[in-house]
């Protein structure tokens, strides 16, 4: 197990968002080609929307989009999207777990749940970006990531179509960066293995 951790010392970028965040992703994703890190996307979505979001995102990128079943391995160079109606959690050994327990912040998947769990496993190897949204999910998760030594980036509230979610985080913690969409894109380009 020690060995595996050393060999797979890749970074993880996790993006969380709600209302108004899909349009940001749709601007960002086509600009990314090969990524040296694992990208995990946790968006609030309607229960039972099945694979609509996956298809939409896959259409915007050349990076492989994984179908996330329970215990799917997290691999660098690919995108994993939290399925609707499950919380997405991170296990040791770079494995994703799903959980259908109660909603958190009226949401399942909840951004807090994924952020907190990723913070525990990935610590300083983790970068999180919190995008537009109309509720406060993500704030506690962002705090946990900072405490674990990870990097937190918040979408500039003025650039978000729903500023509540980024504002909530900014009011409760000190992020590393507050960036508009172009700034976010630059930052992602600069994540090196």
């Amino acid at each position: 197990m020690e060995e595996a951790a050393v060999n797979n010392n890749f970074k993880v970028l996790i993006i969380g968002g709600s209302a108004g965040s899909l349009e940001v992703l749709i601007r960002i994703l086509p600009q990314l080609t090969a990524i040296p890190f694992a990208l995990v996307i946790v968006l609030h979505r309607k229960a039972g929307d099945d694979s609509m979001l996956e298809e939409l995102i896959a259409a915007k990128t050349t990076i492989p989009v994984m179908e996330v079943d329970d215990k799917t391995p997290l691999v660098p160079g690919s995108i994993c999207i939290a399925p609707s109606d499950y919380h997405l959690l991170f296990e040791k050994d770079d494995i994703l777990s799903l959980d259908a327990s109660e909603k958190i912040n009226f949401s399942r998947p909840s951004i807090d749940v994924s952020f907190e769990s990723a913070a525990e496993i990935y610590g300083s190897r983790l970068t999180a970006i919190l995008l537009s949204g109309a509720n406060s999910d993500g704030t506690n998760g962002a705090i946990a990531i900072k405490n674990a030594g990870g990097m937190v980036v918040i979408q500039k509230p003025e650039s978000a179509s729903m500023s509540y979610m980024p504002n909530s985080a900014i009011q409760n913690m000190v992020p590393d960066y507050i960036l508009d969409v172009d700034g976010i894109l630059d930052l992602i380009h600069n994540i090196v293995p």
Binding site: L89, F90, S97, S117, E120
Partner: peptide, 9 residues
Amino acid sequence: YSMASFKRR
């Protein structure tokens, strides 16, 4: 059990 989820419970 899956520790991430078990801990939360």
